[in-house]
Structure formats: C-alpha cells, structure tokens
C-alpha cells in the first residue's frame, strides 16, 4: 500500500521523521480521528487499514499548509489525495450526494459543491 501511495502522490513517505509540524499547523485537525503525521506513520509501519478507514483523509481540504512547512519536503496534500483516490477508485463514495439537504444545495456556492463532489465522490 505505501508503494501505491508513493506512486500516486510522488512523495517519499520514508523521508518523514515524524516531527508533527503538519499536524500542529493543520486547520482541520480538531475533527480528524488520526493526526496527519500518523497517516504517514501507519503507512511506514505497514498498517494501511488504519489509514483507509480514517476520517482524516476526508477532512483534509487540500489547503497546503502542511506542504509549505514540511521540513522534509513531503507534499502531504498530495499524499492525502492519493489515499482518497485509492478508496474512491473502488467506487466507494465518502458522502451520499442524495442526502445533501435542499437547504445546503441552494445556499452554498457552486465551487463548494463541485469541489465536494471532486474530493468526496467517485
């Protein structure tokens, strides 16, 4: 699994020395079930299930904060995308589009909806 993620993200996950700077600065970390640095950690120690089942990869909104600060130059944004894609390509959606309320649909800007569908559905 780690090799698949490395291939899709073009990031060397072995370079991560677990300093945690990604997690420390992540604006969405409060709602995550595992820390962004732990996403890499579980892949490093060969526990991909933890990563595939976590909420973290779906909460990550590609804000690139971790990417610009990583001392080892790992673009974690791309790592998260790779893991999401591994799930989505099994045709497993993270959200059910039909369950989005009418209220939300009419109020949020299109960019929010398109982005949501791109990131959270197969």
């Amino acid at each position: 699994m780690i090799n698949k993620v490395i291939e899709l993200s073009e990031q060397n996950l072995y370079a991560c020395y677990q300093c945690g700077k990604c997690s420390a600065g992540c604006p969405s970390v409060k709602l995550m079930d595992i820390m962004p640095n732990q996403v890499i950690r579980y892949l490093q120690i060969g526990k991909p299930d933890k990563v595939l089942q976590c909420k973290t990869i779906w909460i990550c909104a590609s804000c690139y904060t971790c990417s610009v600060r990583c001392p080892r130059g790992i673009d974690l944004t791309r790592v998260m995308e790779a893991i999401r894609l591994i799930q989505l390509r099994k045709n497993i959606d993270y959200i059910k589009v039909r369950e989005i309320s009418e209220d939300v649909l009419v109020s949020v800007p299109q960019i929010a909806l398109v982005a949501e569908f791109r990131k959270h559905t197969a």
């Binding site: 709602l31 959200i95 909806l113």
Partner: peptide, 20 residues
Amino acid sequence: RNECCGTYNTVSAVDLVIDR
C-alpha cells in the same frame, strides 16, 4: 489571514467550517 476557512467542507462537515 493565511489560515484555511474549511473550504468545501461547508457542504458535508459544516461543524468544521463553523469552528474555523
């Protein structure tokens, strides 16, 4: 000024955006 607002999570994880 350079912190994320929560972006498209406003659709399905609105709590996060409210917090931000």
